[in-house]
Structure formats: C-alpha cells, structure tokens
Design a protein around this nucleic acid. Structure first.
Length: 202
DNA sequence: CACCAGGAATGTA
DNA sequence: TACATTCATGGT
C-alpha cells in the first residue's frame, strides 16, 4: 500500500531494467575499472547532456585517462581540452583531479574507500570543491554501491507530479524515498534510473 | 537564434 | 532558507 513502492513497480513494469546509458550505472556487480569510469562520468555529466559527456569520455579513453590513477598523474592542462564537449571544462578538469586525488591519496584507493562508513565518506566527498549533494550521492550509490537515494531535477519533477511531498530541499526528498524503501542499493539504483528514463520520456 | 542538459559555488536578502 | 548569477559546450 506504500505509494513510493508502487510507483517503482509501475516504472519497472513499463520499462524493465534500466537500459542504454544506465546499463553500466545499474550493472551488478561492477569491476573496479567500471566504478572509476562512473566516478569520472558523474563529474562530466554535471549540467551536461549524455551525448556530450560521451564525446569527452572517448577523448579520455584514447589517452588512457579513464582511471583515477592516470587522471591524478595527468596535468590539468592535458585534461581540459579533452573534455571540452562536456561544458564547464575548466572547472570539470579541476574537479576530476580533486576527486582522483581524494580516492587515490586520501582513501588509498577505491577498494579501501569502499570500507569507509557511508556517513564519513559522504561528508568527505561534500568537503571537496565541485562535489555537491547530487554528485556525492551519484558516486556513493552507483560507484561505491552504498544505499543512498539520489535526488536530481527528474526526481523533483517526479515527486511533484505524484504529489508525494511539497518541497525542493534535498534532504527531505532523500528521506522520503529512503524511509519508504528497503535499504537496498540495487533497488535505489534502478529506481532512480527509471525516474530519469521516464522523465526524459515526457 | 533561444533554450536546455544527471550541478556547484558564491553572493544577496 | 530561497533565489540569482556564473561557468560553456553541442543539440534541437
């Protein structure tokens, strides 16, 4: 009888498992390399459409820059022109370096980062320049497979459309989903992806 | 030619 | 807390 749960079932019935761009982000399990790619994509996709992000990803791939390790070693001036198509390229080049530095140096690698508690990790990510609520949760949910529900513009429209809650604030919306659903990262991944897929379909 | 796309930081009231 | 502005490209 829970509305949030029923809306998920309706979306899944309509679209099935998230496809296309989401097939990697919702893949389970993921290799370490795939997780690093998702972290890089989560930065590049900030206020950018997926097609433009993929052009940047291809450029990075040609230069073997799709790992956090190589990203950290590469000078910012080398990254900037490669990610031009994703927009805000000066900022994003710096943000990629910041995130790579965090996971490689501070966490001693992605594998070690996964062992850190969700609360600490989220706080540390938010302290980084260029990482806000949404990007932090993208990384936590899709790359580190932590049970946090991602709130974005599509989710806000979804909540508004279904009259679930009358606010745009991040935390209350996140709590709305997390309180109504089983604490399951796989469910959170698919649900959020389906909300975006459905939103783009409108 | 105007508007928008998986945002975030900064400043103002 | 709630807006407004800035950063910027490629697609429609």
């Amino acid at each position: 009888m829970d509305k949030i749960e029923n809306l998920y079932l309706a979306l899944f019935k309509k679209y099935g498992k998230p496809q296309g761009q989401w097939s990697l982000w919702c893949k389970r399990p993921k290799t370490l390399k795939e997780k690093e790619l998702i972290i890089i994509e989560s930065i590049l996709t900030q206020r950018a459409n997926w097609k433009n992000v993929q052009m940047a990803i291809e450029n990075l791939r040609k230069e073997n820059l799709l790992s956090l390790e190589s990203m950290l070693k590469s000078p910012t001036e080398k990254i900037t022109p490669l990610i031009r198509s994703s927009g805000f390229y000066t900022q994003k080049a710096q943000r990629l370096k910041t995130v790579a530095e965090f996971f490689i140096n501070k966490c001693k690698g992605l594998k070690m980062a996964e062992k850190i508690s969700l609360d600490i990790l989220r706080k540390d990510l938010l302290a980084l320049n260029g990482i806000g609520d949404e990007t932090a949760d993208d990384i936590l949910l899709y790359a580190l497979e932590k049970p946090v529900f991602v709130i974005d513009e599509y989710t806000r429209r979804f909540v508004l459309k279904n009259k679930l809650l009358d606010t745009k604030a991040y935390k209350p919306l996140q709590k709305l989903f997390e309180d109504s659903l089983k604490k399951d990262y796989a469910l959170y991944q698919d649900y959020h992806a389906l909300i975006v897929i459905d939103g783009k379909n409108q």
